[in-house]
């Protein structure tokens, strides 16, 4: 399959840009892991272009994992080595202190050498077998960017995720409020729908994430607020919910009997404005 993204004007043909080269550069991300102070990004990168692969093997090119947090201006490039095959695993860990909001991830391949006759395999016929001059740092290829979002908190840990999405054993949807000994709430989605949801979330589609929140998390949070309202110690996740509520100025307990409309309103406000949505999404792929 040809990559059809990219619309940049480079002086040299670039894999992944405007169908310049008939081969692919892509990557898959594993679920992003977060500790109290760091984030771990891992996955597998793949390049099918023989010329670029050969350059990578001979250290004439470098493949870099590009991580960027547009909101904080942080960007980092991590070298991906071991290109004996056309697919290789990568793993990187760095401080959370530089990241907030959407985090963009991509692969980029650059030249380590100056070369006057660069002509990669699978070059589009529009170039008519032309040779190109490249220099150290010249961009040779890039993949399709992926994104994920991080929770928006006030320098305070949310104390773990409230929700986890799992594939159900059948085609029904269920909510398990005592998942993992009550540490979190599991939303069990229909078995056949899970892989489709999973692939869309991996792409970090913000529109889909909005739908995901309204379809799955919203009704679940309304119900969770009802349970919490009746008994603040019903499940261990109640503590997590309480912290999030307190952090954003809500103090609800059994003394205050919340009507359905009140719970709807609080749930909507939390999901829209304050609740660590990134935490919800990052745990989406838990199985």
């Amino acid at each position: 399959m040809k990559i059809t993204i990219g619309n940049h004007f480079f002086p040299q043909p670039v894999l992944g840009n405007r169908k310049d080269i008939d081969s692919t550069m892509s990557f898959n991300l594993n679920p992003v892991k977060k500790t109290e102070s760091t984030i771990i990004i891992s996955g597998a990168a793949s390049i099918t272009n023989k010329t670029i692969l050969e350059m990578l093997k001979c250290n004439k090119a470098t493949c870099l994992l590009h991580i960027e947090s547009p909101l904080t201006g942080f960007r980092k490039y991590e070298r991906i080595a071991n290109w004996d095959k056309d697919i290789t695993d990568f793993k990187t860990e760095f401080s959370l202190g530089n990241l907030r909001g959407n985090i963009d991830i991509n692969l980029i391949c650059i030249s380590n050498i100056n070369q006057k006759d660069y002509s990669p395999e699978g070059l589009s016929v529009k170039y008519e077998n032309a040779k190109f001059g490249i220099t150290t740092g010249s961009i040779l290829g890039f993949a399709k960017q992926k994104s994920f979002s991080l929770p928006d908190d006030n320098s305070k840990s949310s104390g773990g995720s409230l929700f986890i999405i799992k594939a159900n054993v059948d085609e029904t949807m269920k909510i398990n409020f005592s998942n993992n000994g009550g540490q979190n709430i599991a939303i069990l989605v229909p078995k056949s729908a899970y892989p489709i949801l999973d692939s869309i979330v991996k792409g970090g589609d913000k529109y889909f994430n909005g739908i995901l929140v309204n379809t799955f998390f919203f009704p679940c949070l309304v119900e969770a607020l009802s349970i919490y309202n009746e008994d603040q110690n019903a499940f261990p996740w109640c503590k997590n919910l309480e912290e999030s509520l307190a952090e954003h100025g809500f103090s609800i307990g059994s003394a205050q009997d919340l009507a359905f409309d009140d719970r709807m309103e609080i749930a909507q406000k939390i999901l829209n404005n304050a609740f660590p949505l990134g935490d919800l999404i990052k745990n989406y792929r838990s199985t």
Binding site: T72, G97, N98, D152, S155
Partner: peptide, 11 residues
Amino acid sequence: LTRRQAASLSL
């Protein structure tokens, strides 16, 4: 202050 904290509206 980390950049993460400094990109907080509420702060």
